[in-house]
Design a protein around this nucleic acid. Structure first.
Lengths: 191, 191, 191, 191
DNA sequence: GATGAATGAGATTTCATTCAT
DNA sequence: TATGAATGAAATCTCATTCAT
């Protein structure tokens, strides 16, 4: 009987926003830009999000969830640790490469006034599975028995930087370059 | 002509800007905010910088130069490589920790529409000494003989993420934590 | 055509509007507010009224008619003038007290751009019975023989202000207070 | 050395606002209208008032103060009560007539969402001198010894209605009509 | 008729920049 | 130079009205 709120439209808005933030930065986008890019009227944005703030926060949360879900795709706990870790490492790398705009968006958000403490907190909780992964490696004595937060810092930090470099230098991430990068990472972690 | 512009005032403006960007993000600051924080009138900002763009670009350049100059402080090429590398690594870490706001500012700038291609290019050139350092390590067969860009990606990525984590988690960077982090980094690089 | 528009729904809309205007003023209400308060969809408002303007004008007219009809309830021209006048005075007072929101609505409308000249004119005509009443009092030499418009000004002015004061001060309108107010009014009018 | 905030500009803004509200109602004015009428840029309004809300509240307070101050002009407590009361009554009448727009503005404000509880409270306190006046009349046994609030309700209510009627009927307030009106008022009050 | 999402014109507000002092 | 009020273009947000279902 009625036209109901459209999930597809939220996706459109999110995609438009991510694209624009990656291109022009968080400080360079307007609600007008977003609506134009999403192919809807400006007012319509406010049907789905009460304010620009809320839109950015919702998108931030969605991006975080997305990237976690993708990470563990195809991960089989019964297979050897290193293989599983590699799989996940590659999942993340592939996802971040293919969704570079999301990566940039997340990075931009971290120190922006848009992201509320609550949103930040929720993002942290999503990291739990990665901590589990590190612990398993340590139990199997394959990974250094140091603070797992520090290990993750290393894994994620280097990956992020790799993505950034790849994007800006223009050097394509060949299969061999990827392998080299993974080896560097593994050499760091391994017990 | 009569008198050169007041250098102290430029410093005030830079400090105010860095502080505010770290707290509210690039997208959250206005010229009014900056002038208030710097303790001067809005109009005065325009005595020192033609526009907001110019101010941000100048500050970006200044920060980059700062951080490079500090990195090699106390570095003696004639001493063993690992010791020198460690020194530089610690220099950077200490600088970034103590000047967290600058670090955030630089990060925020990367994908902003403020930074011009020219400014970006100049920033890249400043990285030259680090490439040299990696090459030395390779010549001495202490460092893996892979693309030095990739190596630096690991060095910088770890450090940046470590700084961020430290700041947000509130976990203090104890000496042992620092040592562990360095070891991870070194294990990744070492041949 | 098929079926007449739902009269109950018009009442709902009117009640919702009056309530909201009393609470937030004419300038503070939106069609969305009204529909929500009335428990219907925004679009449905437009089934019953071509526009916001029309809705307000129709409501204005309805309120005016209401208040006049109530005024003469129980008025018997054959009974003595003062008794009849008192009856009407009390009728109005009671009505305005019990329907304070309507009173506010009418007051708000007077200087609003919503009310058209035609609506205003029609409202004036509704006052005719009150002029008649004043004339009767004068013919019976109980009321001062001055311009009956002026007399009505006093009757209505007192009443309106009394209602407002009662509502805002919170002082309840006791029977004795009502009697005092009527006496003031009557002393002003009486020949 | 500097251009300082200009009191004259506040007056301009107030005059423009009052004029427009009287013509188009509180719900019919925009900040754009006001700035145009005041002959300044829209942004300039926000130099003087943080928001539309604040502007309306400040104007409301100013109008109330204005009208009280004018009321007692030329009032000499040592002269007979009725003369003094008459003087004040005429002062108010004249002021409200000449500043009809202010009167309309105040009336429009009463039930608007703009006026805060605090502003309303302050307005009430300004009425103190009028209560004093009524008490004096009662002490001299010239005025009915009933609640002075009720007496004021009567005086003010009838005056407001008179102003309104005068303005809308187009019947000019001749000297004799004024005298008649005062007599009605006095007859009501007198002991 | 009824619904409520969609629209876009227009309202409020912000802010980089200018300018009079 | 230094100031901060003034500007107006542009951003955010609102809301009467329309329209697809």
């Amino acid at each position: 009987m009625v036209k109901l709120k459209d999930d597809k439209k939220v996706t459109q808005i999110f995609q438009a926003t991510v694209k624009l933030v990656a291109r022009k930065g968080l400080s360079g986008i307007t609600m007008g830009d977003i609506s134009k890019e999403a192919g809807i009227a400006t007012g319509t944005l406010y049907v789905y999000f009460k304010s620009k703030d809320e839109l950015i926060n919702a998108l931030f949360a969605a991006c975080r969830e997305n990237s976690v879900q993708v990470s563990f795709k195809g991960y089989q706990p019964n297979r050897p640790f290193k293989l599983g870790f590699r799989q996940i490492w590659l999942n993340i790398l592939r996802y971040k490469l293919q969704n570079f705009e999301e990566t940039v968006f997340l990075e931009q958000c971290y120190h922006s006034p848009f992201i509320t403490a609550a949103t930040r907190e929720k993002a942290l909780q999503l990291a739990a599975p990665f901590y589990e992964l590190m612990k398993r490696g340590q139990q199997e004595q394959l990974v250094k028995s140091v603070d797992s937060g520090l290990l993750l810092t290393f894994v994620m930090g280097t990956m992020n930087e790799l993505i950034r470099q790849t994007h800006y230098s223009g050097i394509p991430l060949s299969r061999s370059r990827i392998n080299t990068a993974f080896d560097l990472c593994w050499d760091a972690l391994k017990a």
